[in-house]
Design a binder for these strands. Structure first.
Length: 704
RNA sequence: GCGCGGUUAGCUCAGUUGGUAGAGCAUCCCCUUGACGUGGGGAGGGUCGUAGGUUCAAGUCCUACACCGCGCACCA
């Protein structure tokens, strides 16, 4: 007995070298065709589908993507080995606003030109070219992670099939009356010069001044505001219906001239007013505040617009053409001189800013395209319902399950506060709205109308409109394809919690409306990858981690393990390079285990108690993966293989030939169990296992 | 204000139905000329945020509070 080096393949005599192995292995997988479930061996009937949340073509992959890819790849490889038709659909997202903004910035910097200097066609050409480049970069990075995506089904939100899907979806919802064009208050981004949705807003706390003033000497109620300049657009003062102080004034109307602007103020009672804030009286500016717009709806007030798209005043008189911030000071000074300013206080205020550009949002009334979430339509199951109800019920009924309860409640909370979705954007890159105008006529269809004189809508769609169709547009919809029938609803969707509302809810909305079924059965929400100190990775902190650097240092397997073992799914992961290093050592440990076991004869019978012990562990690990305790599964395997198998069993076996078959059994099945987590090193060892028949990635899972 | 997480070893985090507190890293000690020094063995270290409650038994269930993080709404 003892070592029989002549039996061990040459490669095992050196330490495991991921750099030399991973590229080769990935190529082998791709060439096998097994990423495509149609090519998988055996008689497979049960589908298992994941759609990759498409990364934006704005740049390169970050470590958050690497984490997301790993989670999904583990599930896909697991189910593939369990004999399912495992399909993981890759794709990328044009990310209209983000990508255009990025390219505009580059052009401004390099050539000193704006998008208007270039024109629509030229700009779109630039953006498309940029998108192509970063698409290529991103896809090569995803491959490096070992992601077993079916590249034959690759989709891009702006490719021809997805265009058809987007236009068809628009047309059908337009015909159902769920998409309408309406003049309503929008979130206007003065820097980006476009509307944005409620979900693209971030609130920032800033210092502000709270002014208390009267419209005129004879006006009975003082009013507090931080936005003095908008007061020339006021048409009412609202008080709480139960507020005894002001009851006597409700219904009265007053005229005043504020900074040369004549205003007509009606005093009204509305429950939206907080009697405890300021003076308990709210100056209502219908055209420049979401709340005030709604109050104006209820009281049928006029809504003069006094600020334009570049955040300048449009009224006559001294304020004309001033920026809002300058106008504010001008009004304060004027009130002071007139003796109408009663008080100025410093307060903290949450300001709405654009997530993308950082600009302060200016609420404005604009003619835009909307999806009505409260309007009745007939669902394909025959019931009359609304999009809002459909989004709620899909989760409430557990047609869509969210294993993490907390996110489920947050989802409901969000749905209940949902307003109509503004889907038009004033940019050039993206899906142009399939609507044409001629005089008063409006035409909506997948293609342009016949005849002369039609002009297509200039706006493009919110990028989330096309993303919302993603689970089924990638499978060929609106055609009735075999893929759609087989793989939809998909099995698991795994987005970061950041986009639970933005994306998940909207996929449910679209899938329920267009297909009459949910887009997926399970939503597995994952956390963010943060720096070791808990802060977000960001350019300004310069604490970014490039997954490619980590892969080059430690290998993709080690990176995968290091990310997975960081935290339970759903919690934030703190990235720790030391941990990744530890798993590089583990890969090498496994390598040496193989070296030892392969040097032994497979003598003796498999010892029942060892088999029993292994199989129990395997069943345990299986259950953990099934119930998404990915972290636990990985840890258990790690411990079994290192502490039990290597440290104890192999040590005991030395000089005892009767252990040979047992050791081989454990190695063979450990490789299978570990494959979803560390696909490269396990596949590389597998290639030299005497019992192998095919690639490890399609071997049967060792336990039920 | 409403809601959701979190609070466990020096650090990062596990702890699945309540049953004698765990891992990795870090620290310290010891061992080792054949699978692997990218090794092996061992040790120290925790009143499981606070205060109550339920229970034979609570890190785990309940209530309140504190602190940290996040989301939503308001912010006139």
């Amino acid at each position: 007995m003892g070592l029989m080096p002549e039996k061990v393949p040459e490669k095992f005599l050196k330490p495991y070298n991921p750099q030399a192995v991973e590229g080769k292995i990935y190529k082998k997988w791709e060439e096998s065709g097994y990423f495509n479930p149609d090519n998988l061996p055996g008689n497979r009937t049960q589908p298992f589908t994941i759609t990759l949340p498409p990364p934006n073509v704005t740049g390169t992959l970050h470590v958050g993507h690497a984490y997301e890819d790993t989670l999904q790849d583990i599930l896909i490889r697991f189910e593939r080995m369990r004999g399912k038709k495992a399909l993981w659909v890759p794709g990328t997202d044009s990310a209209a606003i983000a990508t255009q903004a990025r390219v505009e910035k580059n052009i401004q910097k390099d050539e000193g030109k704006s998008r208007h200097d270039l024109g629509r066609e030229e700009l779109v050409r630039h953006v498309t070219e940029f998108a192509k480049n970063s698409e290529a970069t991103i896809l090569s990075q995803v491959r490096k992670m070992g992601a077993s995506l079916d590249w034959s089904r690759y989709a891009y939100t702006l490719d021809e099939k997805r265009n058809t899907a987007v236009f068809t979806a628009f047309k059908r919802m337009y015909d159902a009356g769920l998409i309408y064009r309406g003049n309503r208050i929008v979130n206007w981004d003065p820097k980006g010069q476009t509307t944005i949705s409620d979900d693209e807003i971030v609130h920032e706390e800033r210092d502000a001044k709270l002014y208390t003033f009267r419209y005129s000497k004879t006006f009975p109620i003082p009013v507090a505001t931080t936005r003095l300049e908008t007061k020339v657009g006021d048409t009412a003062v609202a008080v709480h219906p139960d507020d005894e102080r002001y009851k006597q004034y409700v219904g009265k109307e007053y005229d005043a001239v504020l900074c040369d602007v004549p205003v007509h103020i009606k005093i009204i009672a509305d429950a939206a007013v907080d009697p405890a804030f300021g003076t308990g009286a709210l100056g209502v500016t219908p055209a420049h505040s979401q709340t005030d717009w709604e109050i104006a709806d209820r009281h049928d007030l006029p809504r003069p617009q006094i600020i334009n798209e570049i955040a300048k005043m449009t009224v006559e008189g001294r304020l004309c053409g001033k920026k809002t911030t300058e106008a504010r000071e001008a009004v304060a000074e004027w009130l002071q001189n007139e003796g109408l300013l009663e008080k100025v206080e410093d307060i903290k205020q949450n300001v709405s800013t654009s997530e993308r550009t950082g600009a302060i949002i200016e609420p404005l009334p604009k003619l835009q395209w909307w999806i009505d979430v409260d309007k009745n339509f007939v669902h394909q199951n025959g019931s009359t319902t609304t999009l809002k109800k459909v989004m709620r019920q899909a989760v409430e009924s557990s047609a869509v399950t969210m294993p993490q309860e907390g996110f489920r409640n947050a989802y409901f909370h969000w749905i209940d506060n949902l307003r109509d979705w503004c889907i038009s954007r004033q940019i050039w890159f993206g899906h142009r709205i399939p609507v044409w105008y001629k005089g008063d006529e409006i035409y909506c269809d997948v293609g342009a109308p016949q005849g002369d004189g039609w002009k297509q809508e200039e706006d493009v769609l919110d990028t989330w409109f096309s993303s919302a169709l993603w689970t089924f547009s990638t499978l060929g919809w609106p055609e009735k394809t075999k893929d759609l029938e087989t793989y939809h609803p998909t099995s698991v969707m795994s987005p970061a919690y950041e986009i639970l509302y933005l994306w998940v809810s909207r996929m449910i909305l679209m899938s329920e409306f267009h297909l009459g079924q949910p887009p997926f059965k399970t939503v597995l929400i994952h956390g963010l990858v943060r720096a070791k100190d808990g802060r977000k990775f960001s350019k300004s902190l310069n604490n970014g981690v490039d997954p490619l650097d980590i892969i080059n240092k430690y290998g993709a397997d080690a990176l995968r393990m290091g990310l997975i073992v960081g935290a339970a799914v759903g919690a934030d992961v703190k990235f720790d390079e030391q941990r990744v290093k530890g798993y590089k050592l583990f890969a090498n440990k496994l390598w040496n285990i193989a070296r030892f076991v392969l040097s032994q004869e497979q003598t003796g019978d498999i010892k029942p108690e060892l088999k029993q012990e292994f199989d129990t562990m395997a069943a345990d690990v299986t259950k953990d993966i099934e119930e998404y305790r990915i972290y636990m599964a990985a840890e258990k395997l790690y411990h079994y293989i290192w502490d039990r198998f290597a440290a104890q069993l192999i040590e005991e076996s030395k000089g005892k030939p009767e252990y040979g078959a047992s050791l081989y059994y454990i190695l063979e099945n450990s490789l299978k169990l570990l494959h979803p987590f560390m696909p490269f090193v396990t596949e590389e060892i597998w290639a030299d296992m005497p019992s192998k028949k095919d690639l490890l990635m399609v071997e049967g899972w060792p336990t039920k």
